[in-house]
């Protein structure tokens, strides 16, 4: 087994699927010769040729339209949006068009498109690069939204996303790209979409997170352990559809929960999870479900991001508050 960073695992997944299925195409701005601004597609054009891995003109809506049209002719696209803040330019092509293709054609056409895109705070980007916009996507019928938290999952989830016959938004947290390595099998494997993973078992409280907040929650769980609190950490891996069963099973065991997201508080993934827990397990709860989120502003200028972003201390503090309720 090889030690890989998350970005290497992502490249490996695309290489695997380009080899596996000749209908798979990989494209986007700077994706070809340059190998992507983060080198996610490094070497792929050389290996698979310009017909399969290529640069596009600089127009996100055009890229989305291209993917939609290629779907109609039987191609399976992995399109990159260079930063997810640029999705506003492509919003109609993703949410208005490919997400509705199956519905619009009564199931005759489908859009097997993976929309890969970096996002996430902590790396001091300019505006419109780091925002967590997964809530907008999760509210769109017809889309699936996947956010890996580690290299192993990233490879397995991306392979599943590419093989999925519906459009999948695959969000890659920039801070996780090169922050750590782990063992990733060189051979192919899949991690199923829509299935959460219990990263750490515990009995006193459930910490429910995704993306970079999984690492923060694991650190918080370690700190809580020193105070004699046993925290369970759930990595959602897919935020649409949600793995409600795993969440409820955990909450029924621990009777307490905190939901953590890097995104703003209002109307997001965490809000949905709180509502689902209330619907299904309210009588098992010993305390209200806590939430750790960013405030309801846009992602801030780089100078303020360290304070704006939720961190492990916020998570541990909220967990204690819920325990002591």
């Amino acid at each position: 087994m090889a030690q890989m960073t998350m970005i290497q695992a992502i490249t490996d997944a695309m290489r695997n699927e380009l080899s596996n299925d000749e209908k798979v195409l990989v494209y986007g701005e700077d994706v070809g010769k340059n190998g992507g601004v983060f080198r996610a597609t490094d070497g792929l054009q050389k290996e698979f040729g310009e017909e399969r891995v290529f640069d596009t003109p600089l127009a996100e809506s055009g890229i989305g339209g291209l993917a939609h049209g290629l779907s109609l002719t039987g191609y399976r696209s992995v399109m990159e949006l260079q930063f997810f803040g640029f999705v506003f330019e492509a919003f109609d092509s993703v949410a208005g068009q490919m997400a509705r293709l199956n519905y619009r054609s009564g199931g005759v056409y489908n859009a097997p498109v993976t929309i890969r895109s970096p996002f996430g705070g902590g790396v001091k980007t300019p505006e419109m690069h780091a925002d967590s916009l997964e809530g907008l996507m999760a509210q769109t019928p017809g889309l699936k939204v996947v956010i890996p938290s580690n290299p192993y999952d990233a490879k397995g989830l991306l392979i599943s996303a590419i093989r999925d016959n519906d459009p999948v938004v695959f969000l890659e947290h920039m801070k996780l790209y090169r922050s750590f390595r782990e063992e990733v099998p060189e051979e192919e494997y899949t991690v199923p979409l829509g299935k959460a993973d219990i990263k750490r078992e515990g009995s006193d409280i459930s910490l429910i997170a995704y993306g970079a907040m999984v690492q923060s929650s694991l650190k918080a769980a370690e700190a809580l352990e020193k105070d004699g609190i046993s925290a369970e950490v759930i990595d959602l891996r897919t935020v649409s559809p949600l793995d409600i069963d795993t969440i409820i099973e955990s909450v029924e065991k621990t009777n307490r929960a905190v939901v953590i997201q890097e995104a703003q508080k209002q109307a997001g993934v965490a809000a949905t999870i709180v509502a689902e827990i209330n619907d299904r397990a309210i009588l098992k709860l010993e305390a209200p479900v806590g939430r750790v989120t960013a405030p309801d502003t846009v992602f801030p200028f780089a100078a303020a991001e360290d304070v704006w972003l939720p961190n492990e201390k916020d998570i541990a503090a909220k967990a204690k508050e819920i325990i002591e309720f």
């Binding site: 339209g65 291209l66 049209g69 290629l70 002719t73 005759v108």
Partner: peptide, 29 residues
């Protein structure tokens, strides 16, 4: 919207212009 097999059409587009970028994709395919 259930286009019969072999009939190569997209359904009429409501969003003005969305079909135009899609056309580039179909032509590329």
């Amino acid at each position: 919207g259930q286009v019969p097999e072999g009939v190569r059409i997209m359904l009429p587009q409501i969003i003005i212009g969305a079909q135009i970028t899609q056309t580039a994709g179909v032509a590329m395919g």
